[in-house]
Design a protein around this nucleic acid. Structure first.
Lengths: 129, 129
DNA sequence: AGGATAGTGTCTTAAAGTGTCAAATAGTGT
DNA sequence: ACACTATTTGACACTTTAAGACACTATCCT
């Protein structure tokens, strides 16, 4: 299978939920499950299927939670993340993540193979051309 | 499962109790129990579910009780800790811990997988950006 | 004992999150 | 192009969660 591909313009509903496009949803259902981890990046969001997230987490497992520097690194990683589940085709992003990504009414979803990204339209056009 | 994730802004009530956000509470209930150990760190608090505390305690057991430096480290660790329990969704932090963390009216909770942290808002922004 | 203070239970209100449906739109096969 | 199906959107009612307030209990102190 091909993982997540393509660009999708979607809109958020009155409560800030966003509809996961059917194609991405199909990939999710076939390859992964409904559990996602959403993570704040520079000015956009990365969505990991649960087990993809887990492999990232594993890479950090050698860090020592009692070491100050390591702890800072762990914090950076975990603080920006949230678990979230697809519910009747949609996901609700927490308000602070929506804000971090500058999401208001519309969003752009971009497939990236094992993950996909969520962008505010204006930020996306600035990147993509 | 994913453990504690995310950042939450919450406020303390008039008696200094803080509401544990529903998501963290759900993780606690699923993976752990209502018994917590709260521990003063550099300028913030770390909350351990009871059994995570126990495993940490074990890790520290290799330290030499006759070594001055180790002993200081242990003392610092244990002296700053308190047991506490979630009661109707909230926890009450002892006054000295609140003071040590600079907590007044608002707090930031940060999930860190197996533990979570409690920060005073001003100290948190200094760390996180 | 009496008063002060710290801790606990519970209620109310407001806000955030969830389920569901119907109309609108896009996509499909013939 | 047409009818038909699937998907997306927006809306609304409902549920859950958080915040603040207040009364009550336990504890401490003199």
């Amino acid at each position: 299978m091909n993982g997540f591909l393509g660009t999708y313009n979607i809109s958020l509903d009155d409560k800030g939920r966003l509809n996961v496009p059917a194609k991405l949803r199909a990939t999710l259902e076939k390859e992964y499950g409904p559990h996602l981890v959403v993570c704040v990046m520079d000015g956009f969001l990365i969505v990991f299927p649960q087990n993809e997230w887990a492999t990232n987490e594993e890479k950090l497992s050698h860090l020592n939670a009692f070491d100050k520097g390591d702890r800072n690194r762990l914090r950076e990683f975990y603080a920006g993340a949230t678990e979230c589940k697809i519910k009747s085709g949609r996901i609700l992003l927490p308000a602070n993540q929506r804000e971090a990504a500058g999401l208001k009414k519309d969003a752009v979803l971009v497939g990236m193979s094992k993950t996909f990204e969520i962008w505010a339209p204006d930020r996306w056009t600035r990147v993509s051309g």
